[in-house]
Amino acid sequence: MEIYISEEDILLNIQNKFREVYPYLKLECYLCPHAPGEPSDYHQRVPADTPIEDIRLVHSFGWVDIGAHRTVADVERDFYRDMGLAIQVFRRNKAKWLQTTKTDGLTLGEQNAMGKESLTTETEQEA
């Protein structure tokens, strides 16, 4: 699975395309990339209505592979290297969203399944 990023995109379009594939994950964009295993700084988060031309460092357009077999670390690296976008993947954990800092070695498919499971477990416990 790949998503296309055009020069006219706004960040929200990219986030929505990603969420269509991974409903228990989300992307946030930041002004600077985070170090491996470290969280992104909340104060550097970029609003979703921002045109990507205003924030990216590499001015190209094209496809980014977001296949379920890809690790979070690889996808975050590709977004930065190929598109100049410093993204962070978040995973749903019950009622919260967690940055995947300590689990960047897991695949997007594994992360999405963990997010789904956290909601299923919470719903079963409430019943």
Rank of each mutant, 00 (worst) to 15 (best):
N16P: 01
N16W: 02
N16T: 06
K17V: 02
F18Q: 05
R19L: 05
R19E: 13
E20L: 12
E20G: 02
E20W: 02
V21A: 07
V21D: 02
Y22G: 00
Y22S: 02
Y22F: 11
Y24N: 14
K26D: 03
K26S: 05
L27Y: 00
E28V: 07
C29E: 02
C29T: 07
C32A: 09
C32S: 13
A35Q: 13
G37P: 12
G37R: 06
E38T: 08
S40G: 13
S40T: 07
D41Q: 13
H43F: 15
H43I: 13
P47G: 05
A48L: 08
D49K: 06
T50E: 09
T50D: 06
P51E: 12
I52N: 11
I52Q: 01
E53V: 11
E53W: 04
I55T: 08
L57K: 14
H59R: 13
H59D: 14
S60N: 11
S60K: 12
F61N: 09
F61P: 00
V64A: 05
V64T: 08
I66R: 02
G67K: 00
A68D: 10
A68M: 07
H69K: 09
H69I: 11
T71S: 11
D74N: 13
D74S: 13
V75M: 02
E76V: 09
E76T: 06
E76D: 09
R77F: 14
R77W: 12
F79V: 07
F79A: 06
F79D: 08
Y80K: 06
Y80Q: 10
Y80E: 13
R81L: 14
G84T: 07
G84C: 07
L85D: 06
I87N: 04
V89I: 15
F90T: 00
F90S: 00
F90I: 03
R92T: 12
N93F: 13
N93Y: 12
K94F: 08
K94V: 14
A95G: 09
K96A: 12
W97S: 03
W97G: 03
L98N: 14
L98S: 06
Q99G: 06
G105H: 15
G105Q: 07
L108P: 04
G109Q: 05
Q111N: 05
A113V: 08
K116N: 09
